[in-house]
C-alpha cells in the first residue's frame, strides 16, 4: 500500500512538472507583452526594457523555462505578480480556500442529490419520474454554467430578492454559486449512477440476494449500490476537477475573489506568473483527488489489489 502511494506520488510529480512545462510554453508563445499591460500601451521603450530585465523576460525561452521550474520546484517560489506586485504564492494562499470551499460544497451537494436521484431512476426505470429526471439532467448537462448562474441571479436576486448575487463569505452568499456549480455535476452523477445501477441490478448476485428473501431496500442499498460505486466515484472525482476549473466562470459571475477570478484577471492582464500558479493549483488538486479515489477503490472492491 505504502509503496503504491509512493509510486502514485512520483507519478503525480511527473504530471505536475509536465503541466508546468506546457503552460509555460503556451504562455511564452502567446502574443502580447506583459510589460505593455503592466505599464500601459504607450510606455517608453526604456521602461519596457527595464521591466523585461527585471522579470527576466529578455532571456531566451529555455533559460526562462529552466529558471521557472527551478524556482518553483526547489524553492517553492511561483514568481512575482506583475500587476499586484506581490508573490504569486501569497495571492493563491488567500484565494484557494474560497475556491476549495465552493468546490467542496458543490461536490457534496451534487453527490447527495445525484446518487439518490440516479438510484431512484434505476429502480423505477421508464417511470414518469425516470423520464422527467432524464429530461432535467439532460438540461443540466447541456446548460452552460454562466447561463445557469445568470438565470439564478435573475430569479433569486433580482426578482425575488431572496439571496445576494455577490460574494461567497456568508452562507446565504454561498448558496447561489454552489447551486450554479452543482447544476451540471448533479446531472452527470445522476446519469452515471442510473446506468451503473441498471447494469448491476440485472446481475446474478442481485437475484441471489432476492432469492434469499432479502428486503428490496437492502438489496438495492447493500448489494447493488456498493457494486455500482466504482464508476460513480470516478465520475465524482472528475466532477471535482471540472468544478475547480468551472470556478473561473462562476467566480466571475458572482464576483467572488477565488482562484478562478484571479486567473481570469491575470489572463486579461497577461500576468504570466499568476496564470501559471492558478493552473498549477488546479492540476495538483485534480491529481490529488484522482489519487485519493484510486486508493479508495481498493477499499471498496476486494478484487482490486493494490500492488
Amino acid at each position: 500500500m505504502v509503496k503504491y502511494i509512493f509510486r502514485r506520488v512520483l507519478l503525480l510529480l511527473l504530471v505536475v512538472v509536465s503541466v508546468m512545462v506546457i503552460i509555460f510554453t503556451i504562455l511564452y508563445f502567446t502574443p502580447g507583452d506583459p510589460a505593455k499591460s503592466a505599464l500601459g500601451q504607450d510606455a517608453n521603450p526604456e521602461s519596457i526594457a527595464a521591466f523585461h530585465a527585471k522579470y527576466g523576460l529578455d532571456k531566451p525561452y529555455p533559460e526562462q523555462l529552466a529558471r521557472y521550474l527551478y524556482k518553483a520546484i526547489f524553492k517553492l517560489d511561483l514568481g512575482y505578480s506583475y500587476m499586484m506586485k506581490s508573490p504569486v504564492s501569497m495571492e493563491l494562499a488567500t484565494r484557494i480556500p474560497v475556491t476549495m470551499k465552493l468546490a467542496f460544497w458543490a461536490v457534496v451537494l451534487s453527490t447527495l442529490i445525484g446518487i439518490p436521484l440516479g438510484v431512484i431512476c434505476s429502480i423505477r426505470q421508464y417511470s414518469f419520474l425516470d423520464s422527467l429526471a432524464t429530461l432535467v439532467t439532460l438540461l443540466g448537462v447541456s446548460m452552460p454554467t454562466f447561463w445557469t448562474g445568470l438565470l439564478l441571479i435573475l430569479a433569486f436576486s433580482v426578482h425575488l430578492g431572496w439571496l445576494p448575487s455577490m460574494g461567497a463569505s456568508t452562507v446565504s452568499e454561498m448558496i447561489l454559486p454552489i447551486v450554479t456549480l452543482s447544476g451540471s455535476s448533479i446531472a452527470v452523477i445522476a446519469r452515471m449512477t442510473r446506468s451503473s445501477m441498471l447494469e448491476v441490478i440485472r446481475s446474478d448476485y442481485i437475484r441471489t440476494a432476492r432469492a434469499k428473501g432479502q428486503k428490496e431496500r437492502v438489496v438495492i442499498m447493500r448489494h447493488a449500490l456498493p457494486n455500482a460505486m466504482i464508476p460513480i466515484l470516478t465520475i465524482i472525482s472528475m466532477q471535482f476537477g471540472a468544478l475547480l476549473s468551472g470556478s473561473i466562470v462562476t467566480e466571475a459571475i458572482f464576483s467572488i475573489s477565488g482562484v478562478g477570478r484571479l486567473m481570469l484577471e491575470a489572463i486579461n492582464l497577461r500576468d504570466y506568473p499568476v496564470i501559471q500558479g492558478g493552473v498549477l493549483f488546479i492540476s495538483v488538486a485534480f491529481c490529488l483527488i484522482n489519487m485519493a479515489v484510486d486508493i479508495l477503490y481498493a477499499f471498496i472492491d476486494p478484487r482490486i489489489h493494490v500492488k
Binding site: S203, D204, Y205, R207, T208, A209, H223, N227, D301, P302
Partner: peptide, 10 residues
C-alpha cells in the same frame, strides 16, 4: 446456474 456471477463480489 453460474457460480462465477451468482455471489456478491464485495
Amino acid at each position: 446456474q453460474d457460480p462465477m456471477t451468482s455471489l456478491n463480489p464485495l
